[in-house]
């Protein structure tokens, strides 16, 4: 029950993108196409899960001795993980590698990844809770990305004032989505 709560909370109630504003760059950057958005979400989930495991190991075995190296060691681990993912994707699917383009190495500077490591530390999750939290956050990111991509595809051809077209309209759409996600807050009332 506890694990289910962590998952649902990270996925919809406290959605990383729409409630914490984490990972907005890919959210606005790669949400132009539906399939790219989905794959970006999966790549993010992969990095999130590995980061969660690494952060747990770092917290238990290394950072108890040198707490001031926390940020530096996290960012180091994240950068290596992203490098690994990049190599994997390049090997397995060159087409996807091309489609994700610059946003793949930019996962390193995606706030969602570092945010996950920090939140997990603040809330003192154990190993299993951490992994479930990462999966939930990843599912939430993917969900937000896919919904956003779907809406953007449908609004592309609609008749909108030139002034609002582009970045401003994306922000308004995101705001309305964020409002919709606030509705999940009553899901677990206990």
């Amino acid at each position: 029950m506890e694990l289910l709560w962590i998952f649902v909370s990270a996925c919809v109630i406290n959605n990383f993108t729409l409630a914490y504003f984490l990972g907005l760059c890919p959210f606005f950057g790669v949400s132009g196409r539906l399939d790219t958005a989905l794959k970006m979400g999966v790549a993010n989930t992969f990095v999130l899960t590995i980061t969660s495991v690494c952060a747990y190991l770092l917290n238990t075995y290394f950072l108890v001795y040198v707490p001031y190296l926390r940020l530096i060691s996290y960012i180091f681990v994240i950068a290596s993980t992203v490098q690994l993912t990049e190599m994997l994707i390049k090997k397995m699917s060159p087409v996807l590698f091309k489609a994700l383009g610059i946003f793949l190495p930019l996962i390193t500077t995606n706030c969602a990844i570092l945010g996950l490591a920090l939140f997990q530390t603040n809330r003192e999750y154990n190993f299993v809770e951490g992994v479930v939290f990462a999966l939930g956050a990843g599912a939430g990111l993917t969900l937000a990305l896919v919904i956003m991509a779907g809406i953007r595809r449908d609004t592309e051809l609609s008749n909108v004032q030139d002034l609002v077209r582009g970045a401003a309209m994306n922000f308004f759409i995101a705001g309305i989505l964020s409002m919709a996600f606030m509705g999940f807050a009553g899901l677990f009332s206990s």
Partner: peptide
């Protein structure tokens, strides 16, 4: 109240971007 909640952030920045776009145009 919505303005201090997360959606308000998106709306505010969206509005400001619109104003900037107007100036630029």
């Amino acid at each position: 109240v919505i303005m201090v909640l997360p959606p308000g952030g998106f709306f505010t920045l969206g509005g400001l971007l619109m104003v900037f776009q107007y100036w630029k145009d």
